[in-house]
Design a protein around this nucleic acid. Structure first.
Lengths: 133, 133
DNA sequence: CTACGCCCTCAAGCCACTTGAGGTTCAAGC
DNA sequence: GCTTGAACCTCAAGTGGCTTGAGGGCGTAG
């Protein structure tokens, strides 16, 4: 199985596969005439990586998850990765919602207060306390 | 006014100021003995950049906003930057909420279904349709 | 004149890839 | 056997928005 077939099977681009190999996330496969030849197990491994990336785990986190799979560690380990990730997602959502509220109030403030003025005087651009981030 | 003073006045790090100059966001100031000397207007300019960054505008967007300020364009231009930014923030929030829902359901699925099993069999790691991103 | 803090430039590192240049291998058709 | 075209190879650089580090210069107070 050549790299292009693997790429389609796992839904990942060809350069990305080579990149994963270069950083040690995928083990280098056998070669024939200089070209990489993969086995069907590699589809599983790469699909798992793609799944982790779809869930927005970082590559470092993905590496840890792969290790826990290879060592057949208990499911509770997997769950704690997921829980920690969920916390960071929720934190990020809270930050973005604060930012959304700030932006929305600035836009409505511009509409009621300064529209018709020029950019340097616009309330949106007045440095003030921004409750976000 | 030397760079360290400007940095404190605008709440930005010294290397960041030099970086902004290197990409053409800040105009290079006068020099004395090789050292940058800033005027009080530069505090305003840099504070505006910081304000845009606090609102999570990209540096490219910030550059456009600065241009609209310098040209004294109407406030409506500023508002449309803000509205577009608000749309992208809301889109990002929606993506993250979908991801949050997916992760939360995987975690609870693990608790009810597979806890006590090992990582390779955990429902969290089963490649399936992930409704996010 | 020495010590210290602040300043300077240039280069590399972070993350997760993508893009491009320039060259090699493979499979199919004639 | 030869040619063509797709797929493969390596290596380097680019993306964003900085931060960090190395190695050195300037200014001022004691």
């Amino acid at each position: 199985m050549r790299i292009g077939i693997l790429a389609k099977a796992a839904g990942v681009s060809v350069p990305t596969i080579r990149y994963y190999e270069s950083i040690g996330l995928l083990t280098p496969p056998a070669r024939q005439g200089g070209q990489r030849i993969y086995a069907s197990e590699d589809v599983k491994a790469l699909s798992l990586i793609r799944h982790c990336r779809d869930l927005d785990f970082s590559l470092d986190e993905t590496r840890d998850i792969l290790a826990s799979v290879q060592r057949r560690l208990p499911c509770s380990d997997t769950k704690s990765f997921a829980e920690q990730h969920l916390r960071s997602i929720r934190k990020r959502i809270a930050e973005l919602r604060a930012l959304e509220a700030t932006m929305a109030s600035l836009v409505s403030g511009c509409e009621t207060t300064c529209c018709g003025s020029t950019a340097p005087d616009c309330v949106i651009l007045q440095p003030g306390q921004v409750n976000c981030g």
